[in-house]
């Protein structure tokens, strides 16, 4: 569905000295500075997949999204999205894709969302019956049917984002690009958006590329993950094997009635961290040891609560950023 081959985007800026003399100087002699926003990027995404695109700020995520959608033209390399070369910006191509940017709005600010939907219907030439079915379905799923007639400027950010999503799905795109769709939203709104994307994907089987700052988004939605850093691909594979980079580790937290002592032989060779002055501990263990260890602790210590967590992706990301070699091991 999406295929990129040695995709590169080079931005050229010119050094500019301040002041008038600098301006005059730069008129006849300019020192070019080349910066690669994306360099030799390969990607192959199959139809119906949800891919998470992760990376720190300025890594080139947005540039990639803009090249995939045809907003900007690559400096070199090739892309094919849904059978089209995006930069040609063919009409048929534009009807197959949609882009949602969490930081920008495509709804008209001063009128109700429904008016914007109707305009988009005309842009994409969606037949009336399909249009009505679509907005009813999605309105139900998101619980926003009663907001269609409210002026967009009066909506909360969460409500607006739901309507933004709807707006971009009216024409049933084959590929959906989500650029930070949950940015700035509270936890509940984030989850609503995630659930909707998940549900909508299951029903319509479209291809989704998602960038996000929130790892929960990626963990909840994506099976596969692409990591980009400094314009280059750092990792491409299943989310699970990404997590495996730091081993099959899990964090287990135990809370005790009273502070316990860790002098026991049992804790000696374990990776343990004492929290809350000994009333809570965090154990990093292999998944396979979970059963035995837990039952031992519960039987021998005054446990009042416990839970497990996967090692958060953030921590994995941080280690990779610090030490890219681990990926090659």
């Amino acid at each position: 569905m999406i295929k990129a081959d040695k995709l590169t985007k080079k931005f050229t800026t010119y050094k500019k000295e301040p002041g008038l003399s600098g301006a005059i100087k730069s008129f006849y002699q300019r020192d070019a500075i080349h910066k690669y926003a994306v360099k030799d990027f390969d990607l192959d995404i199959k139809s119906g997949e949800i891919i998470g695109l992760l990376g720190p700020n300025g890594a080139g995520k947005t540039t990639l999204m803009k090249m995939f959608t045809g907003i900007i033209v690559p400096s070199s390399g090739e892309i094919v999205v849904a059978g089209h070369v995006p930069s040609k910006r063919e009409k048929a191509f534009r009807k197959k894709i949609a882009l949602v940017m969490g930081q920008k709005s495509q709804l008209w600010w001063d009128i109700p969302a429904l008016d914007s939907f109707l305009l988009l219907q005309k842009y994409y030439e969606v037949p009336d019956s399909k249009f009505n079915k679509k907005i009813n379905e999605m309105g139900e799923m998101l619980g926003v049917t009663e907001l269609f007639d409210v002026h967009v400027r009066k909506l909360s950010l969460g409500e607006r984002m739901k309507l933004e999503l709807m707006a971009s799905l009216l024409h049933e795109p084959e590929v959906l690009f989500l650029d930070e769709p949950t940015i700035g939203l509270d936890l509940i709104a984030q989850e609503n958006i995630r659930n909707f994307i998940k549900e909508y994907h299951e029903e319509n089987n479209l291809t989704v590329i998602l960038t996000s700052h929130y790892m929960q988004d990626v963990q909840a939605l994506c099976k596969d993950l692409v990591l980009i850093a400094g314009g280059e691909k750092a990792f491409d594979g299943p989310l699970k094997s990404f997590e495996k980079v730091l081993g099959h580790k899990k964090s287990v937290y135990f809370t005790f009635k009273d502070a316990i002592s860790l002098d026991d032989q049992f804790f000696k060779e374990k990776d343990v961290q004492v929290l809350k002055g000994g009333r809570e501990i965090e154990l990093k263990i292999d998944e396979s040891d979970l059963r035995d260890l837990s039952s031992h602790i519960i039987q021998n210590y005054p446990v009042i609560d416990f839970h497990t967590e996967k090692i958060p992706i953030e921590k994995v990301m941080k280690s990779i950023m610090k030490n890219p070699e681990i990926l090659n091991q």
């Binding site: 959608t69 045809g70 048929a92 882009l99 940017m101 920008k104 709005s105 842009y123 994409y124």
Partner: peptide, 12 residues
């Protein structure tokens, strides 16, 4: 504001 991005995506 960069809202031109959205305009460029439309099939018009």
């Amino acid at each position: 504001t960069g809202n031109l991005d959205y305009i460029l995506l439309k099939p018009v």
